[in-house]
Simulated assay, not measured.
Amino acid sequence: MNQDQDQPLTITPDALPEVITRYLKAHRAHDTAAAVTSFTDDATVIDDGRTYQGVAAIEAWLNRSATEFTYTIELTGAQRTDETHYVAVHHLEGDFPGGTVDLRYRFTLHGDAIGRLVIGP
Rank of each mutant, 00 (worst) to 15 (best):
D42Y: 05
D42E: 13
A43I: 12
A43R: 09
A43S: 08
T44P: 02
T44D: 00
T44F: 03
T44Q: 14
I46Y: 04
R50H: 14
R50M: 11
T51V: 03
Y52C: 07
Q53S: 02
Q53F: 02
G54P: 05
A56W: 01
A56Y: 06
A56F: 02
A56I: 04
A56T: 14
A57Q: 15
E59K: 15
E59C: 06
E59T: 15
A60V: 06
A60Q: 15
A60C: 07
L62I: 01
N63S: 13
R64M: 15
A66Y: 00
T67F: 05
F69W: 14
T70C: 03
T70L: 02
T72D: 13
I73N: 08
E74C: 10
L75T: 13
Q79C: 10
Q79K: 12
Q79D: 15
R80C: 03
T81W: 05
D82Q: 04
D82M: 07
D82G: 06
D82A: 01
D82K: 01
E83C: 03
T84L: 02
H85F: 02
V87M: 10
A88E: 04
A88H: 12
A88V: 11
H90Q: 13
H90Y: 10
H90A: 09
L92V: 11
L92F: 15
E93T: 15
G94H: 10
G94R: 08
G94Q: 08
D95F: 07
P97N: 13
G98P: 14
G99T: 06
G99I: 02
T100F: 00
R104C: 11
R106H: 12
T108K: 12
T108Y: 00
L109K: 12
L109V: 07
H110D: 12
H110K: 14
H110S: 14
G111I: 06
G111C: 09
D112E: 13
A113K: 15
G115T: 05
R116F: 04
L117M: 12
V118G: 08
